[in-house]
Nucleic acid binder design. Structure first.
Lengths: 233, 233
DNA sequence: AACCCATTAGGTACGACGAATTCAAGAGAC
DNA sequence: GTCTCTTGAATTCGTCGTACCTAATGGGTT
């Protein structure tokens, strides 16, 4: 997915990145550039470029006379799409999924409220189209079709909010939704109540009812939280 | 601040990063690695490492026979702390500040609600201490002291939420708050109502009243939005 | 305890070659 | 004559290897 094999240093990252984010190297672990270069059978130049990228993600820190030390998790750029993908692909997947779902529950309602005020007619139409597509695929185990429209729906909401920070989470939300369908338990058809909520959100945005759009979207995200057993006692 | 001068490639980034994020090179502009190396008086190796970092931030894309092309803004990793700093330092500062404030308004209330349920006694105490510090510095143009406790307050809230994605925004919020005090108009003492709200949030968290903590924090962020004239007509 | 120095690993520079893509010139067909 | 397809040359990044510099570290000396 995304950008596979954009050079040798990319190949190295495809192995090193997941390994580090999976916690295979405890914080403080020391890696040596030349040693890594030998292990991956690449030149030092290539390995140095890979280390620079990991450094920009704050996964590691390079210091003279010491080597490349792995940084503690609290330093990582956890919003980096690449880091998110690596963590979603590894053993930290459940925890990452929970973090992202909580993030969704905070962002999406506000984004929907903004979208209700700022969405263009085209975006309103697109939203309705997505919601109808969800309805059409909500029965008969058409999970892929449903997922496609679900991802599109949330991406439109986030984009239509007019906030670039929200819009940039479209890909993340898409991966969360895809993960729920593909990896986790999703044997049955989607919850009819959730489908209805999406349709109602589309209506609220079209009607410029920000408060209603926000409240309905909050209900959707609450459902997502409940699916992962994230709730108050 | 942060990490100045971590090598020659860092120096290059300190110039190129702000230039690109400021829009000095329109999307699609092509830069040549060797040309850049000459301009910055560094070797090609160093320049290549710098380009790799910019590439990992999705600011540029490197292609053979073409060069290093600047990507459109919608591709940038706008959550990268480095990118945020560069944009806050440039001409895009007002727009960046608005985006981040809207982001705050979505995140912080939810974070406060979670903090009310998950904060440790130490974090509750720290929160109260911060709020009292804000009160103590709220009169007599003690802006620096007020800012210090304000930043600490919001950082504790975000950390105590137990969500790493929220916690990672602590630095961003701190920079927004600092920006408001230093660059923008903030001649007078802070709004007494805002100070009171912070104290009440600390109380609500201590009392484990999630709903109240969330609502009060929402009032704080609404105030921040109004300061930037972000509101519904 | 303070100081000095050898070791070590990253930091930088330079040069060479390989690989891929773009662009233009030329051959061919209609 | 114009258009298309092919071919090839130019260009720029990609990779490699070497050499040397720099600066932290750790141990040994005074």
């Amino acid at each position: 997915m995304s950008t596979p094999g954009r050079g040798l240093h990319g190949r190295v990252l495809d192995t090193l990145g997941p390994a580090i984010t999976a916690g295979e190297y405890p914080p403080g672990s020391v890696l040596l550039t030349d040693e890594l270069a030998q292990r991956f059978e690449v030149s030092r130049s290539v390995m140095r470029e890979a280390v620079r990228v990991l450094e920009s993600m704050h996964l590691v820190e390079s210091r003279r006379r010491v080597g490349v030390t792995v940084l503690p998790e609290c330093e990582w750029n956890v919003y980096d799409p690449q880091v998110i993908r690596w963590r979603l692909a590894g053993s930290e997947r459940p925890r990452q999924l929970r973090s992202l779902t909580v993030l969704r529950s905070a962002i999406e309602p506000v984004a929907a409220g903004l979208a209700a005020r700022l969405a263009t007619p085209e975006q309103c139409a697109e939203l309705t189209e997505c919601a109808l597509g969800m309805v059409a695929n909500s029965r008969g185990h058409q999970l892929e079709g449903y997922l496609f429209h679900d991802m599109a729906f949330h991406r439109v909401i986030l984009t239509a909010s007019g906030n670039e920070m929200f819009a940039r989470l479209g890909g993340v939300v898409a991966e969360v939704l895809a993960g729920r369908t593909h990896h986790d338990v999703m044997f049955e058809d989607p919850d009819p109540a959730a489908v209805t909520l999406h349709v109602q959100v589309a209506e609220a945005v079209r009607a410029r009812d920000a408060e209603r759009a926000e409240r309905l979207t909050r209900e959707i995200t609450v459902g997502a939280l409940q699916e992962l057993d994230i709730l108050a006692p």
